[in-house]
Amino acid sequence: MPDTASHEPGGLAVRDVSFRYGSRTALDGVGFEVAPGRFAALLGPNGAGKSTLFSLLTRLFTTRDGRILVAGHDLSRHPRAALARMGVVFQSQTLDLDLTIRQNLSYFAALHGLSGREAALRIDAALERLAIADRAGEKARNLNGGHRRRTEIARALVHRPSVLLLDEPTVGLDAAARAAITDHVHRLAAEDGLTVLWATHLTDEVTDGDRLVVLHRGRVLADGECGALRGGRSLRDYFLATTGADAPEAVPGGPA
């Protein structure tokens, strides 16, 4: 059931979310909202709490502190309604390598209650959207890293979610594949009106028009439009200055 208290029924809202692993605080009062159709980059160095936040957003585990609204549905009160509106691309690879692209997508479509002709049509459309329709009959094992990622993004779109979450989706990809994936997902927001949350530690994946949320040590340090936030500086300089010099891994092109 839609939560009428939300102003942005199509978007994503994280409100005052905290989480602890035993005595260690991983997230401390994290809050931000992403309007429908916006591309938001969740930028933070390794260990900032991005993965923990993704685990909470995908309901791998839950917290009592704070609320998460997906397309207006409260994730803790109406988890199934919220999950149905959400597409997820995990950081680790989640394809069955011995199955074909189509089998992988059919499996996922069925998890969302889609079968038969309806599922086939949606799978075709999603593969078409990511320009991998010609590979549908191939085993995932035969695809390179970039195409596997595209397949996972296509899979996350099969049930036509309104919110797409991606957890460091370009890890392990070469520069060309990285740029292509980043570009694809930006277009999904701009052209299809999808709300996107893109977690990364690489500043060159964020454009000036994107919404930028900087997460560091479990707190939101900055939240606004990327171009306005960075001002005259490069995003990289802005990011390093905001998070302090103790995050060398955040430097794009630095040692992996």
């Binding site: 995908t58 309901r59 999950l83 997820v88 680790s92 690879q93 989640t94």
Partner: peptide, 10 residues
């Protein structure tokens, strides 16, 4: 992650 994927099914 494929268990995580399964658990995101509504």
């Amino acid at each position: 992650g494929s268990m995580r994927l399964l658990l995101t099914a509504p």
